[in-house]
Simulated scan of single mutants.
Amino acid sequence: MPELVLWDIDHTLMATRGLGRELWAAAFEQVTGVGLREQASVTGSTERVILRETARLHGVTYDDELFARFTDALGAEHIRRTAELRERGHALPGAAAALAALEERGVRQSVVTGNVRTAAEVKLATFGLDAYLRLDDGACGEDGEGRPELLRLALHRAGVQAAEAVFLGDTPADVAGGHEAGVRVVAVATGKTPAAELEAAGAELVLDGLADTAQVLDALRV
């Protein structure tokens, strides 16, 4: 088994079924005073990039101070609406079992996600996945612009070489980011990208989902 398994969160481990956009819109309006009319593409991106591009679409000046205030507001919205997240969202089938199986085998696990840290913590705790993940070994949306940068940071924090890690995600950006960072990628077709597109993007393996724990464990072996 690999020394370290890194997980994307949204559409890889869980789904928020539209609530995520609502929380994002609320935080955006709080910090800009502008109602959200259009959101930049979120697939495989980070909150920093999404905010910068969305601000541009609304004629709002972006800077690091705006991102810091947005990070706080978005985290607070997740905390405030945790009960609604639990009601509307869900962990994807097999996610908890896969995490538990890796934990039993002594494999370290963390996340590499575009989510800001507080939002990631709330999502994982809400669906009972946080106990298996060492977030300090991973990277979140505050930590960089794109997947390659976040993956390299996670490897550095965990003290693990790229060849000893596997990254699981659901988008071509996850696949490309993993390869740029030198990390093997197992893609899951549980998001908006079909399996054929993930294969075409170059994922070493593509799973339909996480429901078959034995299949997930086999896919992760390096």
Rank of each mutant, 00 (worst) to 15 (best):
P148W: 02
R157G: 11
T171L: 14
R152A: 12
D170C: 12
D170P: 09
V160N: 02
E180Q: 15
L151F: 07
D170H: 08
V185S: 00
L150H: 00
E145P: 02
R152N: 07
L168S: 05
A154C: 11
A187T: 08
E180L: 08
G182V: 08
E149Q: 15
G177H: 07
V175Y: 13
R184I: 02
H179C: 05
P148H: 01
A163M: 06
E164Q: 08
A176D: 07
D170R: 11
E145H: 15
R152K: 10
A162Y: 12
A158W: 02
E180V: 13
G169C: 09
H156L: 08
T171K: 10
G146D: 14
V183P: 14
G146V: 04
V175M: 12
A173Y: 08
G169E: 00
Q161N: 08
A154V: 09
E149G: 13
R152Y: 04
V186A: 12
A165R: 02
V166R: 10
L150W: 01
A165K: 03
D170E: 08
R157C: 12
G182L: 02
L150E: 00
A163R: 15
G146N: 14
V160A: 00
R184T: 14
A165W: 01
D174Y: 10
P148F: 04
E164F: 02
V166W: 09
L150F: 01
E180R: 15
A163N: 08
L151A: 13
V183H: 09
G169M: 07
G182N: 01
R147W: 04
A163Q: 13
G177A: 01
H156A: 14
L150G: 06
T171I: 08
G144D: 08
P172K: 07
P172W: 13
V188E: 05
E149H: 09
R152L: 12
D170K: 12
A176Y: 13
V183I: 14
G182Y: 05
E145L: 13
V166P: 10
A162R: 11
E149T: 06
G146I: 10
Q161Y: 09
A187E: 01
L168M: 15
L155Y: 05
A181M: 03
V188P: 13
A181Q: 00
D174H: 07
A154R: 07
E149F: 07
G159W: 10
L150C: 02
G146C: 13
A187M: 06
V188H: 09
A176G: 10
T171S: 15
